[in-house]
Amino acid sequence: MRGFELVHPGSLADAIGLLDTDDDTVRPFSGGTALMLMMKTGVFRPSRLVHLGRIGDAYSEITASPAGGLRIGAMATLSALEHSPEVIRVAPVVARAMTRLANVRVRNVACVGGNLAHGDPHMDLPPVLAALGGSVSVAGPQGTRDVAVEKLFSGYYETVLGRGELITDVVLPSQRGWSSAYLKCTTRSADDWPALGVAVSLRIEGGAISEARVVVSAATEILTRLTTAESALTGAAADESTFARACEAAAAEAEMVEDARGSADYKTQLLRVYLRRALTQAVQDGAVS
């Protein structure tokens, strides 16, 4: 990992300019926790790291919108998310997910944008943000665009981000009336990478589910929205039998990947159980007001 250049652009435009290259040994560097691992093991040998720490404080701000949504600067650390009064009020499920994500030191330095851009399907934040209907603002040499978090990932450790593109913000739509939960499951030590992550978000009106989002991660190659499970939920009563149907639909729909944390069959069983528990918890915790 010797011999690379660590540069500190003072603005987003400068950062994009530095990253607008075909050279894949040039990479953005925010908290660096993931890149450092790849560098230490020799998987990635950079020629230049573009440190984003000085592009401006605005990119680490977290602000609640009057409508009940949230804008999270990509350079906000995971710890900032965990402790932000706005996040706790508007999207409490996000703050709760943080307490068992990696560890305190990683959360202190790892940033929201990097966490998403890394494309690792075992991360906790992407499924939660996807279930909340979140999107990212992306800035690049060709200008800016918005991408839904659920559409951000194109493969195992791959995203749709193009040359020179950086995530600048995460935007959550109004969470009012939505009940959400995230559960993850480990199968080795308690603080292992998850074998399964499942995030749900429901809009319940008069005892019936009017809208539902169900997202599975970690057990699948990329974060996946389970639309048949969502269909099973939508329009039905928020009760056990609906949840059971949704869980069977999810089990039939999700394509599980076998690894050291469990077989595909076993992960399918975990999905059945954890989706039901997540749905139950979302209902129990109630809607954001």
């Binding site: 603080d191 292992d192 050291a260």
Partner: peptide, 28 residues
Amino acid sequence: TMFENMDLDDGQVTNASLADYKIPGMHD
């Protein structure tokens, strides 16, 4: 007893790090 295990593939340890070879922590 519960989870430590060297995963071997043709003699290669495929989880030779504390990220993938889990040892007990506080929650265990």
